[in-house]
């Protein structure tokens, strides 16, 4: 029996909807995925409006206006580029340091955004979602639109660096697409799972934040894993190191040194995705109204 959002209309013959204390517990993973996709499609105009509101609100009242939305995403990368220019970092395996860092930081902020944004959104919108009847999945999608915008701005800078340094990519599209799929499903699933647990255990958000701050340095984003001594063992055990390394190497080198590790993490991502989406869908109604 399907469970739907509070206010809903369908043009079909009368359907039955049950609201029970254990609603959605018996929903399977594929039904949950379909239901969430349907929700997002139904409320896509809301998601776009929310994105547009948040986009405008972020620069409202400032002197530079919309320019801030292009400047701020570039700040993290520009800090590292500055450090490269004053030669704080060594030369990297065959790549321009600026490009190495630019790409890694762009990719890192994109995939970790998929973890952090659902946690933020569920925390901030759970209370109001009960009143607005807007599914939390819609608010999360709208925040992903902002994440995509930031990612595109950073990608623009990476393209500029490629042009400046003439360090042309040698892409392996199959590997790159697979890596992107694995990274996105892994991070999205983690984000959905943590977003719900954060409502029960408020420490979750802080712990994830700390973990990712360390992760920036332990995932080969700033320093190549090969230069990190004993920590280099994380090259295959740390999924973020695998995702960052594989995406960069499949784009610029055309091959990745640890495809088996990527395969294993791909399997883990699939399991997490199936579990995470179902878990989020089951619990979404239960966190509404909570602060």
């Amino acid at each position: 029996m399907p469970d739907d959002a509070s206010s809903k209309m369908q043009q079909d013959a009368p359907s039955k909807t049950l609201y029970l204390p254990d609603s959605r517990y018996s929903v399977g993973p594929f039904a949950a995925i379909t239901a969430i996709v349907r929700e997002i499609f139904q409320y896509r105009s809301h998601a776009l409006t929310l994105f547009s509101n948040d986009f405008k609100a972020s620069y409202r009242g400032t002197t530079f206006g919309v320019l801030w939305n292009f400047i701020l995403p570039l700040v993290p990368i520009s800090v590292y580029l500055l450090l490269v220019n004053i030669r704080v970092f060594p030369a990297y395996d065959g790549m321009e340091p600026a490009l190495f860092l630019g790409f890694n930081v762009m990719f890192w902020y994109f995939i970790t955004g998929l973890v952090l944004r659902p946690i933020d959104v569920v925390k901030s919108k759970a209370a109001s979602s009960m009143k607005t009847s807007l599914p939390l999945s819609v608010a999360i999608s709208s925040s992903f639109a902002q994440l995509c915008f930031d990612g595109l701005v950073r990608l623009g800078l990476v393209v500029a660096l490629v042009l400046v340094f003439r360090d042309w990519p040698n892409p392996n599209f199959l590997g790159l697409i697979f890596t992107l799929l694995v990274s996105l499903t892994f991070c999205l699933s983690a984000g959905l799972i943590f977003s719900i647990f954060n409502m029960a255990y408020s420490d979750t958000q802080r712990l994830v934040g700390i973990f990712l701050q360390y992760g920036l340095f332990l995932s080969g984003v700033i320093f190549p894993m090969s230069s990190m001594g004993r920590i280099s063992i994380l090259e295959v055990w740390n999924p973020f190191a695998v995702f960052v390394g594989a995406s960069r190497d499949y784009l610029f080198v055309g091959s990745y040194a640890h495809p088996e590790a990527l395969g294993v993490w791909g399997f883990v991502s699939l399991v997490m995705f199936i579990t995470g989406v179902r878990f989020f869908y089951t619990m979404e109604q239960r966190v509404r109204g909570l602060t």
């Binding site: 509070s6 049950l18 029970l20 509101n53 009960m130 009143k131």
Partner: peptide, 27 residues
């Protein structure tokens, strides 16, 4: 369906719409 019951059962046949909060569904 905005919040789930902790006991009992609600069965709705067909479609429903709620005017509980004026801001619901609006931006």
């Amino acid at each position: 369906g905005q919040i789930l019951p902790d006991a009992g059962r609600i069965e709705l046949t067909g479609t429903s719409a709620a005017m509980i909060d004026l801001t619901a569904g609006f931006q």
